[in-house]
Design a protein around this nucleic acid. Structure first.
Length: 849
DNA sequence: GACCTGCTGCGGAATG
């Protein structure tokens, strides 16, 4: 294969590949050359392309080169830590450890490969605390914990390379920030450290690379590489098209109308993954499939994040061994273990993003060279447009980026305590180290001083509480020169350390940035654990009530100490729990693609099967109202029994529309007092008022600022939404990450109500006595950016400001407005079934005259 | 004959 012809190790590696009948991947040579040159980099490719072994060869070959005499290997002791391998998942850590051990064992290299995650026994951890294996596979959280060891510098003293697997998964979250800070710590101690990231393809690979290797500092030039896996990966995206679009719903999300087609698709393959967007939807579909195909009991399974880990492991194992015909899952199966037998992937409902759809497609054909295929199943008619848009975007490589959080001070505060535990730190050195990360490259002196002061004194409000004075500034004994009454020349300042053992223990228990929801465990009265559901769902149940969870019908018995005890119910009717998850708006990349597809349709171009299928409904939209082009904004005015409606269609995703609805309502009401009720979805927003709405006046320029202006945006949004309450909720996460609120020991958690109560208390105390507290302003910033997507909203308003505004006065609602109307009915509807009502409305609107 | 949105992920160790 001529990969490494100048190396004596070549035949060894060649044989090893040949034994597995693997051909080398084209990017292996490139990766190896870059590694050998001392460089760092990011290797991006779809899953199933063999990235793992491509980067693993680097450090292994380097060792072989340094130890040419193979006969001596058996007499050499395993070296201390050479390679650190980070993964975002415990399950992946276990799999990777096994994968890396194989070539080490086969080649006879004297290396130890071990993992370290929370589930590793404490005796193994204790041994590792003294000396790390030659390769350590671990998570960002466990790496932080290692850095908090007093002997941390020693433990990492021989490290050659760090490899970050699935970097795209960490990049956009505070877990990524935590990783950035730890990598900066490693780089300062090992200046020649090579950092390699493995990632799926992203829209902002340059940012991903910068965040991985850190920003260049003066005097330390760096050599970085962005390597593309250029094995072409064929990905097929198709749809199950409803036979009669006229009888297909215009709204709704469950999609059970497609059940027969889905069952036929499952029957076609050997082993099938059915992805849904929510846990409730996964449970519903699992029941529906089982009801339709009772013979499949035992051959189909359910997998989502609220199921007990043991249940999930059983399912994953069944998939790997090819024992399961079908698994209905949420994002919990997006990532991780390789299920080679899977040959069919279905996606129920819109994937909401291009990257997400590609990720799910990649769960089938998970081998180099194999074709990946995903079949989308629409739950309402307009979703067909989204599928066609997603396919075009994927082919064009228009994939979403992931933006790293900027300066999250809660993560910095936590990291400072970690550093203080790990042998301590000094002001200037630590500041330079933190600023070498992408996340904190623009950290101001004031922000740094505030964060440092916060861990030393607890800030203005907490100075009299010793438990919040976590870090002490220790002055070296010989630093003070008594003769000169001054500190010695060149003294680097005090060393910041943790001295209190309780502070140390509490900190180690709280390392990490993942803050969960308020949930209660679900367990059989006689012991078997099923998983967890949101507390608010359980709190509404009476003993004897039934609900469906983990694919079973359960009877609620009682609630004790955050555990809901249940028994099997005799009847199989019951409510399916709904979780308070986060909301997934249509991604920016997909929103752009959808607008382009609509423009094509407006111009009479229907290239894809999906678009041809919705053509009759789009024709109704065009006849009754209008199909907006990309440079237009459609506004519909309709009067119904409910009152006066305005519908806006920016196609920017529901989070942006939520902010816009509040903003528009606020600005319209400033012209004349008027009250609105609002509804939003991914396509648009609806304002409803009992009184006529002065739209024409506002569009004509009356009122300040104009409706679509970005001027005063950040004043007008908080005024129109309950931003203060949102910040209070956001602060719960910040308080926990910054170490203000302890979560208790694993396994015996502090009750979440207490957590919420005390984070509320901190919020109030800071607001009153420490208004300059930077964690408070961070909470407000995070609400604007994450809950309201403020930058996306500003861009959207700019775009709309340039757009031609098309106002249509309608006698009855258009197809596009339909889902927004249904959304409102959902809340009001009691006796009549929603589906019936939707059907009647469709008929009333003349679709089936 | 009821159902009618909202994902994922981690984590301790000293003492008897």
């Amino acid at each position: 294969m001529n990969l490494f012809t100048d190396l004596h190790a070549q035949p060894l590696i060649e044989d090893w590949f040949a034994q597995r009948r693997w051909s080398p991947f084209p990017f292996q040579q490139e990766t190896w050359a870059a590694y050998r040159g001392g460089g760092s980099g990011l290797l991006h490719a779809p899953t199933g392309q063999g990235k793992t072994y491509a980067v693993w060869l680097g450090p292994v070959m380097q060792w072989i080169e340094a130890h040419p005499n193979r006969d001596t290997w058996a007499t050499i002791d395993a070296p201390p830590l050479q390679v650190l391998w980070l993964t975002p998942l415990r399950a992946l850590a276990a799999d990777t450890t096994a994968a890396l051990q194989a070539p080490i064992r086969d080649l006879g290299i004297p290396w130890t490969v071990e993992r370290r995650t929370g589930d590793v026994s404490s005796s193994v951890k204790a041994r590792q605390n003294k000396r790390l294996p030659s390769t350590l596979v671990t998570t960002p959280e466990s790496l932080s914990l290692l850095i908090s060891r007093p002997n941390a510098e020693e433990l990492f003293g021989d490290l050659q390379a760090v490899i970050v697997d699935e970097w795209h998964e960490l990049l956009g979250s505070k877990r990524g920030t935590q990783t950035e800070l730890c990598l900066a710590w490693l780089r300062r101690r090992r200046p020649n450290l090579r950092t390699w990231g493995l990632s799926a393809t992203l829209g902002n690979l340059d940012v991903a690379l910068d965040a991985l290797v850190g920003v260049p500092t003066p005097g330390t030039p760096r050599q970085t590489h962005l390597i593309t896996g250029h094995t072409p990966k064929e990905i097929v995206i198709d749809s199950l098209i409803p036979a009669e679009i006229e009888r297909f719903p215009w709204a709704g999300h469950l999609g059970l109308k497609m059940l027969p087609a889905v069952i036929a698709a499952i029957e076609e393959g050997e082993s099938c993954l059915v992805f849904t967007n929510t846990r409730n939807q996964a449970e519903t579909w699992y029941q529906a499939i089982l009801d339709a195909m009772p013979d499949w009991a035992g051959l189909i399974a359910l997998h989502h994040g609220s199921l007990d880990p043991q249940v999930r492991e059983w399912v994953e194992d069944g998939l790997r061994r090819g024992l399961l015909r079908c698994v209905v899952a949420t994002s919990s199966l997006d990532l991780g273990v390789d299920f080679s037998p899977v040959d069919r992937v279905l996606q129920i409902g819109s994937p909401k993003g291009v990257a997400r759809l590609l990720q799910r497609a990649g769960r089938s054909g998970h081998r180099p060279g194999a074709v990946s295929r995903v079949t989308c199943v629409p739950t309402h008619a307009f979703e067909l447009i989204e599928v066609a848009a997603a396919r075009t975007a994927a082919q064009a490589g228009a994939i979403e980026g992931r933006t790293p959080p900027q300066k999250p001070l809660d993560v910095l505060v936590q990291h400072l305590v970690t550093l203080a535990l790990g042998g301590g730190f000094r002001y200037e050195e630590a500041l330079a180290e933190v600023r070498s990360t992408y996340a904190f490259r623009n950290l101001t002196d004031a922000e740094w001083d505030w964060a440092l002061g916060f861990v030393v004194t607890g800030g203005d409000a907490l100075t009299s509480y010793p438990e919040y004075q976590r870090v002490v500034a220790k002055v070296d004994e010989d630093a003070y020169d008594d003769a000169n009454h001054d500190y010695a020349q060149g003294w680097a300042g005090p060393r910041y350390m943790v001295e209190d053992r309780k502070v140390a223990q509490r900190h180690r228990l709280n390392v990490g940035t993942i803050v969960g929801e308020v949930t209660v465990q679900v367990q059989y009265v006689n012991g078997g654990k099923l998983g967890s559901v949101d507390e608010y769902f359980i709190s509404r149940l009476q003993p004897g009530d039934r609900f469906i969870f983990a694919g079973r019908t359960l009877e609620f018995v009682n609630l004790r100490e955050m555990t809901a005890y249940v028994r099997k119910a005799k009847s199989n009717r019951g409510a399916i729990p709904r979780w308070m998850g986060s909301r997934m708006p249509l991604s920016t990349a997909l929103a752009v693609a959808v607008r382009a597809k609509l423009e094509a349709a407006a111009n009479g171009i229907f290239e894809e099967d999906e678009l041809r299928a919705v053509a009759p409904i789009l024709a109704m939209q065009a006849a009754g109202s209008y199909i907006p082009r990309q440079d237009e904004l459609l506004i519909e005015e309709v009067e119904t029994d409910e009152g006066h409606h305005l519908f806006f269609y920016p196609f920017e995703g529901r989070l942006v529309h939520e902010g816009m609805a509040a903003l528009f309502a606020y600005r319209l009401s400033r012209l004349r007092p008027i009250t609105f009720s609002m509804a939003v979805n991914d396509y648009g927003l609806n304002l409803l008022s009992p009184d006529p709405i002065p739209l024409a006046e506002v569009l004509a320029g009356k009122g300040t600022p104009p409706l679509f202006s970005t001027e005063n945006l950040f004043e007008d949004i908080p005024a129109s939404l309950n931003a203060a309450e949102m910040a209070r909720r956001q602060f719960r996460e910040i308080a926990q990450i910054a170490g203000l609120v302890a979560t208790g020991l694993p396994g015996q958690r502090v009750k979440s109500k207490h957590l919420q109560a005390s984070s509320n208390l901190f919020f109030d105390v800071f607001s009153r006595y420490d208004a300059e507290n930077m964690l408070l302003s961070q909470a407000h910033r995070e609400v604007l950016e994450e809950q309201l997507e403020q930058s996306r909203m500003a861009q959207a308003l700019d775009r709309i400001g340039q757009a031609r505004i098309v106002v249509m006065q309608l006698r009855r609602p258009s197809p596009l407005s339909f889902p927004l109307l249904v959304d409102r009915m959902r809340e009001e509807l009691s006796s009549e079934s929603l589906a019936d009502r939707v059907r009647k409305m469709q008929i009333a609107m003349g679709l089936e005259a």
